[in-house]
């Protein structure tokens, strides 16, 4: 039995509160693939990069740093499942490690709660850990599949903060990546290319909160592009994108009168499904848009 790799699991807000299935799927499927996600007690909101970052950068740095210090105290790297959290936690970690002045300023604030950022850990998105063949890799995922998702067409939504800004990331091509498609195809599904797939979901940057109609306009366009190529479902690696696509379809029907009925899954939910977890274990009944049409094709 290979040794388990342990990570401090940063949950963020949306997954535990809206899509708890994504959280449980992440833990269970990771365990099957050699990754143990340990609870990171005391973690707060990352904080949401678009909202907090737009209003006060110092608060953004300090709150993110606090979350990082909790993991430093656990002496584990952080693994997370949300693009937004990735931006906050990964970028702030990177900035504080390389900018002495910034770090000293943040530590002045953290001193008040007896904390100190040391820069001793790294931050990873669970999707990249799953893709890395030195840690899990596409082959191992394929081998772990018990319920192949054969016959389904899945549109992959990368989101924004995972891959960009390119200069501050290490994820490769930002115009035509294929790695999450590979993760999806390892589950037996067909990952379909669609127009403008790298476009934002519309939620982030505070836009969903500030200007819902415009954010839905963007989501609407994405859904149309996905329908155009016959997608049965959308998958993403960000609960906020998930919220925008899922809950967003209800809002789109209210505001624009268009009904899509397109199931939306976090990749870890799909992975759980393919590994044989039941829909109720995955909390799929908590999704706004029914996942039944997709489940019928698979189960």
């Amino acid at each position: 039995m290979t040794e388990m790799r342990e990570y401090a699991f940063f949950l963020g807000c949306i997954a535990p509160n809206r899509y708890p299935g994504a959280e449980s799927a992440s833990i269970i499927t990771s365990r099957r693939l050699g990754i143990e996600l340990l609870p990171l007690n005391g973690a707060s909101c990352c904080p949401a990069p678009g909202a907090f970052g737009s209003i006060d950068l110092n608060i953004w740095y300090a709150m993110a740093a606090r979350n990082l210090v909790l993991a430093e105290q656990m002496e584990r790297d952080i693994a997370l499942i949300c693009n937004g959290c990735y931006k906050s936690i990964y970028e702030v970690n990177h900035k504080l490690k390389h900018n002495d002045e910034l770090r000293d300023g943040v530590n002045e604030v953290l001193k008040e709660i007896d904390m100190e950022f040391k820069g001793s850990i790294d931050v990873w998105h669970l999707a990249e850990l799953l893709y890395d063949e030195n840690i899990v890799g596409v082959e191992k995922i394929r081998e772990s599949v018990k319920v192949p998702l054969t016959g389904t067409k899945i549109a992959v939504h990368y989101g924004c903060h995972l891959m960009k800004p390119k200069k501050e990331r290490h994820m490769g091509s930002t115009e035509a990546p294929r790695w999450i498609e590979e993760l999806v195809e390892a589950l037996g599904a067909e990952a379909v290319e669609y127009r403008n797939k790298m476009q934002c979901c519309g939620a982030g940057g505070g836009v969903r909160g500030y200007d819902l109609p415009h954010s839905l306009d963007i989501t609407n366009e994405k859904l149309q592009n996905m329908i155009e190529v016959g997608a049965d479902a959308v998958t993403e690696v960000c609960p906020f994108c998930q919220l925008q696509f899922d809950r967003g379809q209800i809002e789109i029907e209210e505001k624009f009168g268009i009904k899509y009925d397109m199931p939306v899954f976090h990749y870890n939910e799909l992975l759980g499904l393919a590994q044989g977890m039941s829909p109720s274990e995955l909390g799929l009944d908590l999704h706004a848009i029914s996942t039944e049409p997709f489940l019928k094709k698979v189960l």
């Binding site: 115009e175 290319e193 669609y194 127009r195 403008n196 155009e228 190529v229």
Partner: peptide, 8 residues
């Protein structure tokens, strides 16, 4: 800034 292709 960008060019997108219609899949059909």
């Amino acid at each position: 800034s960008n060019i997108q292709e219609d899949p059909v």
